[in-house]
Amino acid sequence: MKVDLYLTCVNDAMFPRTGQATVRLLERLGCEVRFNPCQTCCGQMHMNTGYREDALVLARKFVREYEHAEAVVMPSGSCAAMVRELYPQAAQWAGDDELLRGVQALESRIFELSEFLVDRLGVTDVGAYYPHRVTYHPTCHAARMLHVGDRPLQLLRNVRGMTLLELEGAEECCGFGGTFAVKNADVSAAMLADKTRHIQDTGAEACTAGDNSCLLHIGGGLHRLRSGVRTVHLAEILASTEEEVFA
C-alpha cells in the first residue's frame, strides 16, 4: 500500500526521529512510504488561535496536495482531528463549498498512526521491542475528536520487553492547548503540574503519547523539574526492535 507520511510542522521542525520511526515502522509492515516535500502545516495553530483565514489557506493547500492519496498517515492525533473535524466546519464557516467537497472526499483516507495500524493494516502486534518502563498519556484530540479509544494501548501492550504503567488522571488534558500554554500560562502550568506529578508517580522512565505537541509540553515540564523522566512518541516505541531501539 502506498502511504503518504504527513509529518506535521512540529515534527518537521523539532522531532525528526518521530518521522524516521514512522517511516521505518510503516516500511517494516510492508507499506510504500512517500513524503511530499511540499507539505508544511495543517493550519491547526492558526485555526485554534482564531486566525481562520490563514488556516483556510493551509487547509486548501492540504486538500490540493493529498486529494489523490491512497492513505495519509499522521503521527499526530490533533492534526488528523484538524483535517477530519475542523476542515469541514471551517469550510462551512467560510462558505467554501469546493473545500468542503474536497475534505469530505478525503476524510476517510486520513489516519492518525494508531488508527492506521489497527484499523487499516489490522495489526496490533507490530513486532516491537522496547526494554523500558513506560506510561501512556492519551491526548485529548485523539481521544475526544478522533475517538481512537484503546488502539494505542492495544499496540503498546504487545511491545516486548516493555512495562506499561497506568497513569492516574490519564484522560485529563496536560494543559498544552497550543497558544493556550502562553496566553494562559498560569492555568496551563497548574494543569501541567498535575500531569507531571502523576507521570512521576508511576515510576516510569518515559511518558509516551501519539502527539509530539503534547509531549513537547509535558517533556518541557519534566525537564524543567529535572525529573529524569523523558518523553517519547508512540511511533518511536513501535519502530524499535531488538536490532535497533529508538530513543
Binding site: 518537521d12 525528526p16 524516521q20 517511516v23 500554554a181 502562553v182 500560562a185 501541567l192
Partner: peptide, 21 residues
C-alpha cells in the same frame, strides 16, 4: 515567555527529517 516560566524547550535538532529523507 509564558512557556519558559515553567517549561524548558528542546533546541531544534541540527538535522531535520527532510535532510534524512
Amino acid at each position: 515567555a509564558g512557556w519558559t516560566e515553567v517549561r524548558d524547550l528542546p533546541a531544534l535538532p541540527r538535522e531535520g527529517f527532510r535532510e534524512w529523507w
